[in-house]
Design a protein around this nucleic acid. Structure first.
Lengths: 127, 127
DNA sequence: CTTTTTGCAAACCCTTTGCAAGACA
DNA sequence: TGTCTTGCAAAGGGTTTGCAAAAAG
């Protein structure tokens, strides 16, 4: 069990994510909060987003070849990255069946998890 | 239709991938061929691997938060990245059902493709 | 002779790190 | 007080880019 302290910065970072519409990257969170809180450093933002995600307060979304982003909506859902503007969007594909696999693959690998990433074109960039 | 020329470098890069066991990253391909071909530059390797993948000669495997890698085996199969040594392994999970989705999601996004990435621990690192 | 490709080095993006100073419990 | 956490700046990994020179067709 890891003991963590409550810091002002941590709370501000969480609140900032909660108040951002979509799927901000760590840098976007930093850019947003630094106006009100110019003394918070980028490293602190990265560290705390990671920690908040580990605690389940927010979702950490891995973006292939792009900046990872974070989501206050922790209900499992899927994301698409626009190939043009590179932004991340929620998509509404429903009930993707869980992939079934043996925990130990016949290659000898232990498989712990998987992620699915969609790519496409967002409504804006279709115009 | 893109017109491409045949270059010595391109052929050497392809042959190098063909002769490497597993799933070399661009850098690993570069490191390997530079002994025999010290004049080929890293940028040329990156550019050509990309191009060869676009042409379907090799597979480009996207690795979340790691160096992408390439595979001479162009038959569709799945990969796992070891959380410890970070190497990429083929896994033998069979027949993952294709995810069904509408080309146009109800969010308005056009969905073009998706990738699935597995994570776990490789046989070596289990010891 | 035109256009693609190369090699080089620098730039780039995103993220992590070491460390001393500061804050929390 | 002990140890977590911060801010800073620098380093890191992987990849792309601009450009002039070289090669392909």
């Amino acid at each position: 069990m890891i003991i963590t302290r409550n810091t002002v910065q941590r709370e501000i970072i969480l609140q900032t994510v909660m108040n951002m519409d979509s799927h901000p990257s760590a840098d976007e969170v930093y850019e947003k909060l630094k106006y009100e809180n110019p003394s918070i450093s980028r490293a602190t933002v990265y560290r705390n987003l990671e920690l908040l995600a580990k605690r389940g307060k927010i979702l950490h979304i891995e973006i292939p070849k792009g900046a990872d982003c974070f989501d206050f909506n922790t209900i499992e859902h899927h994301h698409m990255r626009c190939d043009i503007c590179r932004k991340v969007y929620d998509i509404n594909i429903l009930k993707i069946p869980k992939i079934k696999y043996d925990k130990i693959d016949s290659s000898g690998c232990i498989i712990n998890e998987y992620t699915i990433s969609f790519k496409g074109i967002c409504p804006n960039c279709q115009k």
